[in-house]
Design a protein around this nucleic acid. Sequence first.
DNA 1: AATATTCATCGTAATATTGCGATATTAAAA
DNA 2: TTTTAATATCGCAATATTACGATGAATATT
Lengths: 103, 103
Amino acid sequence: MGITKSNLFSEEQNRLSTLLKVLAHPARIAILQHLASTPGCINTDLVQELGLAQATVSQHLKALKEAGIIQGSIEGNCLCYCIDTERWQEVKQQIMSFLSEIA
Amino acid sequence: MGITKSNLFSEEQNRLSTLLKVLAHPARIAILQHLASTPGCINTDLVQELGLAQATVSQHLKALKEAGIIQGSIEGNCLCYCIDTERWQEVKQQIMSFLSEIA
DNA sequence: AATATTCATCGTAATATTGCGATATTAAAA
DNA sequence: TTTTAATATCGCAATATTACGATGAATATT
């Protein structure tokens, strides 16, 4: 089928898996790492940095934005993305909680 | 295309994303949670527990096994799966290291 | 005003994932 | 030895993801 049977699982299991899925791509990992290490959050740089097409990068940014992990603010001509630190703490907490639950 | 351009990213970024992808499914999360909470690691129970078809559960187990996270040992008629604790520590370490790298 | 730059979105193609029935395979049980 | 039970694997269908070119919308530059 290709569709995950979310109804079989708990709210929390679904939420966690959705979150992990967003992080489970090297481009999105690279974007987060770059945004973390670059104080003034740059955007077009990412296209250069990653070597992916602009449309593709934009798509990855959208996924991160929809998960609430990053935020964009308009800065004249440019869009300035940066990590939502508060939300990231939440994300971190949820994942770490799962990790330590296992063993 | 649908194919991730792994060559654009570092070994570590690829390794991490592969790991996260394995965890990014509610059924596999549920399996790990069940194996963690059930001392004698049971298998067919999972089919009942999850409500997915046997073939589907078997597939998810395979994914976890290939990632080295669980191990199966033959126990007469049954296959007995349990978490590879040592490997799980490694997995945990890698993910946590990434999480704290960001913010 | 005309042009250039930045970014989002649409449409599309290629590939991956999810799920399951059917069918092996293997070992216990009858 | 036949049957039953437990798993794995194959093959397929449905859906999701990844990637990109083309295009559009908005602002900056000339």
